[in-house]
């Protein structure tokens, strides 16, 4: 995907490369922000960039605390304007530190959609720092982690499969497996058998039965 398009789309302002590959470049205006302390496990250096944090060659990140935004509502718009068209992936990291966030976030959502910026909301400096380091660390990571996976061991597949039925929890999966043996046997279990299992009430039994026995398509 777009994780490593090293080519063109080069931003108009001079591209700043970090001294070490693993460094996050921080805009000097962010100096003194407690957030910087919370960025862990990656190197940090200051550099003249259009964004606040440059967490990848094509990824720029703006930071906004809602408290600050309330005092200076025009600030973020100036920043976005300054950002221009730079970066392939543009992030607005919002620190949600006020209770009346509804309208502000709504407003910002609209602004960002127009300016092709993706919003990420964090609720603490720790969390925000975690996001920044994640972005840097995952710069070259493949998205396999969130793709549908195939190879897994039997138990976890069975667990994921059966817990997809609503109301069935991990313990129930064990109960089912140990009482019936195999997936096929579970699929053939009768209502009475299921009813007799510890922890299986009527609703759960009904859910299990309907998952296995109701047709996939009801117009068939």
């Amino acid at each position: 995907m777009a994780s490593t398009p090293t080519t063109s789309s080069a931003p108009a302002p001079p591209v700043v490369f970090p001294t070490f590959r693993n460094n996050v470049i921080i805009n000097p205006v962010q100096r003194g922000n407690p957030l910087i302390e919370c960025i862990r496990n990656v190197g940090k250096e200051f550099g003249d960039i259009p964004a606040d944090y440059q967490v990848g060659r094509t990824t720029g990140l703006l930071f906004l605390s809602l408290k600050y935004h309330r005092l200076h509502p025009e600030y973020i718009h100036q920043r976005i304007e300054k950002l221009g068209r730079s970066y392939n992936l543009r992030i607005l990291l919002i620190l949600c530190d006020v209770t009346e966030h509804k309208d502000t976030i709504r407003e910002l959502t609209k602004t960002c959609l127009v300016n092709t910026i993706t919003i990420i909301v964090a609720w603490s400096n720790d969390e925000a720092g975690h996001y920044i380091s994640c972005f840097k660390q995952f710069e070259h990571k493949s998205p396999d982690l969130i793709k549908e996976r195939t190879e897994k061991d039997y138990h976890s597949v069975l667990r994921t499969a059966l817990t997809s039925i609503s109301k069935v929890n991990k313990t129930d999966v064990e109960t089912l497996r140990s009482s019936f043996g195999s997936f096929a046997k579970i699929s053939q279990a009768s209502t009475d058998q299921l009813q007799n299992l510890p922890g299986f009430g009527q609703v759960k039994v009904k859910n299990v039965k309907s998952a296995f026995e109701k047709p996939f398509r009801n117009n068939a």
């Binding site: 994780s3 919002i94 959609l113 990420i120 994640c134 710069e139 990571k141 998205p143």
Partner: peptide, 18 residues
């Protein structure tokens, strides 16, 4: 959180509404 990061990295065009 990490997964959200990975998702945005994979789909730069994807917007998120919170």
């Amino acid at each position: 959180q990490s997964k959200i990061v990975l998702l945005t990295l994979s789909f730069p065009r994807l917007r998120i509404i919170w």
